[in-house]
Amino acid sequence: MNTNDKPISCDVLISHLPGWLTDDLSTAERAAIEGHLANCPACQQELATSRQLWQQMGTVPTPQPGPQVRTQFYAMLDEFEAEEKEARSGTLLGQSGALRWIRDRFSPKLIMRLAYSALLLGVGVLVGYWAQRQRTPEVAYQQRVDTLTAQVQEMREMMMLSLLENPSATERLRAVSYTKDIDDTDSQVIDALLMTLNNDPNVNVRLVTLEALADKAQDARVREGLVQSLTRQESPLVQVALADVMVKLQEKRSLKSLRQLLKQPGTNELVKTKLEKTIRQLS
């Protein structure tokens, strides 16, 4: 611009640019500008770009403030008036400056937020307290343990029952040993065990089963099953073991079965001696 052949005039013209943009010029100024522009394409260009930009700036929209601005303002005004009144009466009562100091530093918004936080905290504490009263942790813990124990028992039972069907004797032995861990044996388990005691092809399995059943002899069904089992056993080992169990249980009902077994022709001589001894001990 300053390379123009009329540098001073151009500078003057450019200095009028702000007034020219807002149409804030005296008649003389306007005339001078127009006179210069007629002979100076560079300044014409300069002013044209500026004006174009100025007009474009006008197209940038100015949004309106939201309606909440008004409500918030009147709320603030009310509060302010109330505070003023309070402050005036406060000074009469000799109120200390501390309260006002606090009020000055905490805007209404901040106070609302603080109050909200305090409320949330309070609700949290109450809920926690209520929950604790409702169910003390130890009770809840105990309940959970009980549920878990019950579930484990159930699973053991199921596993045991299915294992008893297993063709492998080892597996069946394992199944019988599981019953030692089951505290409240239900009829299903007892039936399964008695069935094994009477029918299992393997002597060892039968012996272990007998042992397991003897542990549960406080159950009437088990005792009855054992007594009935006496005449069905063929293996001398099991017969002797059964006889021992009868003595241990002091089961007098077994006398009849024992005598019957004694009279059976196929009974082993050693077993007979044992049976006689057992009968003597029981009667």
Binding site: S15, P18, G19, S50, L53, W54
Partner: peptide, 16 residues
């Protein structure tokens, strides 16, 4: 202020 407006317009022109 007029000088400032003038400079501001030049700066705006450059950026824009």
């Amino acid at each position: 202020i007029k000088v400032r407006v003038h400079r501001a317009m030049n700066e705006l022109k450059k950026i824009y």
